[in-house]
């Protein structure tokens, strides 16, 4: 037991020594709701409501939560497709949440995104070669021949045949299209890739191939991932650490093993129990959540999860619990702890 702990500690130390690549501090992203005759802002969809987390270099942070909980909004805010309403996005120690113009363009070289929809994320009238070449052309002035070699190289790296260069996206299957998207994200040799449910639109048989490709590329290019998924089973194979989101808030964040073996938050417990298990004993314990996810336009007071929580207390409807570390490396936002 004690040797195990020691091992764990030295492992943690090693992890802690790695530099932090991305640190999110109290990030909020609201979508204004316009209405009335003058199209005034009459409310806010609080898609991301005060979340904080960090990702170390070379690490994969999985971000899970039901659809609509604000995962994509988080990813898109980090890559600056959306403007943060409040908070800081520290990339390599520098706040990028307020950048604009040239300095914003520069940061795009370091952060790239793989999108969810393999069909809508590729321009239908662009040749695959051009799709992959475009990011390079935007930032570097290199010769035609050199560019082509580089693109061919990228296509090969993501496992596409050479003649893919001259084809159009509609000639490929979903999995192959996702590979094209990955090649495009890889083209600028970014440090951080935000993968927004990259396999959720794919057949189960294809999913693992794409996940494996991402893992291989991570090793080869020393990539850091923010890996978004809507269920824990996909995230499990990819992530070092996992964050669980619920209605715009981060409810739990911890190392993978700790989260799967000892989930703390009642919501995480429900998610973990929903993972299909070969072990029949676990099946019996499945926790089914009651009710629906409330609207982020009008979130409940206190803990966002309390209306659906089986163990909710009085306090839960009054104050919003903050994320606190209850075990080394395991944070949870719940009044129970």
């Amino acid at each position: 037991m004690s040797t195990m702990d020691l091992k764990n500690e030295s492992f943690n130390l090693e992890k802690n020594e790695k530099e932090t690549l991305l640190e999110i501090k109290n990030l909020k992203t609201y979508y204004p709701v316009k209405g009335g005759f003058f199209q005034r802002t009459i409310g806010n969809v609080k898609a991301v409501d005060d979340i904080s987390f960090s990702i170390k270099k070379g690490e994969t942070l999985g971000l899970v939560g039901e659809s609509g909980c604000g995962k994509s909004t988080t990813g898109r805010t980090i890559i600056r497709l959306l403007k943060a309403t409040a908070g800081e996005i520290l990339f390599e120690g520098k706040d990028i949440s307020k950048l604009s113009g040239k300095s914003l363009q520069a940061i795009r070289q370091d952060i790239q995104m793989v999108f969810q929809d393999p069909y809508a994320s590729l321009n239908p009238i662009q040749m695959v070669g051009d799709i992959v070449a475009e990011p390079i052309k935007n930032f570097k002035s290199i010769g035609k021949k050199e560019l082509k070699t580089e693109v061919m190289d990228l296509l090969q790296k993501v496992g596409l045949p050479e003649d893919a260069y001259y084809k159009y996206a509609h000639e490929f299957s979903g999995g192959q299209r996702q590979r094209i998207g990955i090649a495009r994200a890889l083209a600028l040799r970014p440090k951080l890739i935000i993968a927004d449910e990259p396999v959720s639109a794919l057949d189960v048989s294809v999913q693992s191939q794409v996940l494996n490709l991402l893992k291989e590329l991570q090793k080869e290019f020393d990539l850091t991932f923010l890996f978004i998924a809507h269920d824990l089973s996909v995230v499990k194979h990819m992530s070092d650490r996992i964050g669980v989101m619920y209605l715009g808030s981060m409810v739990e964040i911890s190392g993978r093993k700790s989260l799967y073996d000892e989930p703390l938050h009642p919501y995480t417990k429900a998610l973990v129990s929903a993972i299909p298990m070969p072990d029949p004993r676990r099946k019996a314990n499945r926790i089914v959540l009651k009710g629906d996810v409330p609207s982020p336009l009008n979130p409940p007071t206190g803990c966002p999860f309390h209306p659906r929580c089986a163990v909710a207390m009085d306090e839960c409807s009054k104050t919003k619990p903050i994320l606190k570390e209850v075990k080394p490396g395991h944070q949870v936002a719940c009044h129970l702890y």
Binding site: M113, Q116, D117, N123, F139
Partner: peptide
């Protein structure tokens, strides 16, 4: 609304482009 437009922005295309 298509993601390829988001992709175009994220790979550094200017609004004109």
């Amino acid at each position: 609304e298509n993601e390829y437009i988001l992709a175009a922005v994220s790979i550094g295309c200017s609004p004109i482009k």
